[in-house]
Design a protein around this nucleic acid. Structure first.
Lengths: 149, 149
DNA sequence: TTAACTGCAAAGAATTTGCATCGTG
DNA sequence: CACGATGCAAATTCTTTGCAGTTAA
């Protein structure tokens, strides 16, 4: 719990894991990790690409997809699908740090994160009870956000 | 309570709603409603199309998509996205009848329904607490199913 | 008869893959 | 130097749309 922000923390962890997996450090992959690390909530491949482009980092969209696939395979990011036909990704931080779920406004499309302890414990109890090895969970609440209601 | 199976019940309700919405009763749409009504869990457009084809009902895939879009718009089906890049749909029955969520095996891809009262009440409490009008929710548990673990 | 419904084929959008080239270890 | 990484373009896959023929009300 020091001066290192969780952002750099995750980025470092991700880069280390990639290296451990025998991967080299290319510029595109590094940029994607960097971009993901600065996120608070899930983003799609196109959004990540645009973000990098805006930051002056010209990256091929294919490389963004490849980086995401790699990171997902190593368990460093998780894919969240809110039902609009595109995949979103967000860093999977250690422990319960920043663990959250998503509110999806079906009117404006905005996706907002939220957390709820009651929900987490209900899921934990449930996970223990069933004959299925749970290693990831996601709760989506669809409806109308405050501004759209 | 009654001799009418929930299957016919939902199908009738769906057809009635379509008619009320000023839609005619074409064969393709009727077949899709029929097929959805016999489901216990979510299916993708292609699967529905194949099911109909297997039953001798030759239907254009485009019509299946059109029927699903129409039903979703009327709130008769809900779309479930388990993260494999394809959309799945299942009938949205009245009240809590058959209300369930999904276990997704990341190894074999199998999707299995489950129910949990604790989860439902946690979500109900949460929904009351937040500044967001929730009208639909979905819980996805990813991991390894009994046969894959 | 009229407007909705349907199927096929073309169009679109998101994601993946082939390949020649570039850069890291 | 050798092999992984990258970008572009072509290829796939899923879904939507344009049209002309078909059919329910």
């Amino acid at each position: 719990m020091g001066g290192v922000s969780e952002r750099d923390d995750w980025a470092q962890q991700a880069l280390a894991a990639l290296q451990r997996a025998g991967r080299r450090r290319g510029s595109a992959r590094g940029a994607v990790v960097e971009q993901l690390a600065s996120l608070r909530c899930a983003l799609g491949a196109r959004e990540i690409d645009e973000g990098l482009r805006a930051a002056g980092q010209r990256v091929g969209l294919a490389s963004v997809y490849r980086a995401l696939a790699e990171l997902e395979g190593l368990g460093l990011v998780r894919r969240v699908d809110v039902g609009d036909g595109t995949a979103r990704y967000e860093p999977r931080r250690a422990e319960d740090e920043h663990h959250h779920h998503h509110l999806v406004c079906d009117h404006c499309g905005r996706v907002t994160p939220f957390t709820d302890a009651g929900l987490e414990s209900a899921i934990a109890r449930l996970s223990d009870r069933i004959d299925f090895s749970v290693d990831e969970h996601e709760v989506l609440l669809h409806g109308a956000c405050a501004s759209c209601a």
